[in-house]
Design a binder for these strands. Structure first.
Lengths: 116, 116
DNA sequence: TCTGCTATGTGATATAGTCACATATAGGAG
DNA sequence: CTCCTATATGTGACTATATCACATAGCAGA
């Protein structure tokens, strides 16, 4: 399959949840940064503490360099131009890998909670 | 109670799991770095990927500066000297806070898994 | 003496996320 | 026309967390 070595989705570096959250929005169809930020507010990553918008834009840039997403410019007749993102096959593979990783996280957190 | 503002245990900065893992070992009784590392191998934070030992020592130093743990030197007749750590009341408060935070993480991860 | 286990640590680097700040279009209120 | 709000995107500097390479020291057994 794809080369995911060193990618955060392998769980190598106990990641935060921004990357899988972005992937979960994109898998439902292409979208742009601002719309994702609005959706992530609804998802509410821990309490009422949505992720910083700069982190979302920056993560999208990094994910594009890594080949997980591709983008094109959407210049509507009215309103600000926007960057439209779509998942690549590599991005979909990354997403599948995240399912396992998140499941492992959940089990680890369960173990921790039991021993606290 | 204690001033935990800005402390990672409030969940402010989607943390990794090293701090609560260390607290979970210490709450069972005082211990030293090496023993904690051995226990954390058993806990296996994600797959078979135990935390780096330098991170544990460094985190303990930081936690001592923050007043979550206190230490004294244990110089046994034979073997290398070791740093013995115990939880402080502030450390116990931090631990209690972590329970809520970890529970929130688990719920967030559950939500994410459902939407992937 | 050499190896391995116990036990502790520093220096440099990498990664992830936050805070303050900057830019631009467009619509409505005053 | 100006100000405010919403939409939309970003950079620079900083902080927090974790990893990699490397260093040290006691003691036990081959």
């Amino acid at each position: 399959m794809q080369d995911l070595k060193g990618c955060a989705c392998t769980g190598k570096s106990l990641p935060r949840l921004l990357r899988p959250a972005i992937l979960s929005v994109l898998v439902k169809g292409g979208s742009h940064g601002y719309a994702m930020i609005e959706e992530l507010k609804g998802l509410s990553v821990v309490g009422d503490h949505p992720p910083d918008h700069t982190g979302v834009y920056r993560t999208l840039q990094v994910m594009e360099k890594e080949g997980l997403v591709v983008s094109d410019w959407d210049c509507p007749g009215s309103g600000a131009a926007r960057h439209n993102y779509r998942l690549t096959p590599k991005g979909k593979a990354c997403l599948e890998r995240w399912k396992r990783t998140l499941d492992e996280y959940r089990r680890t957190i369960d173990m921790l909670l039991k021993s606290l």
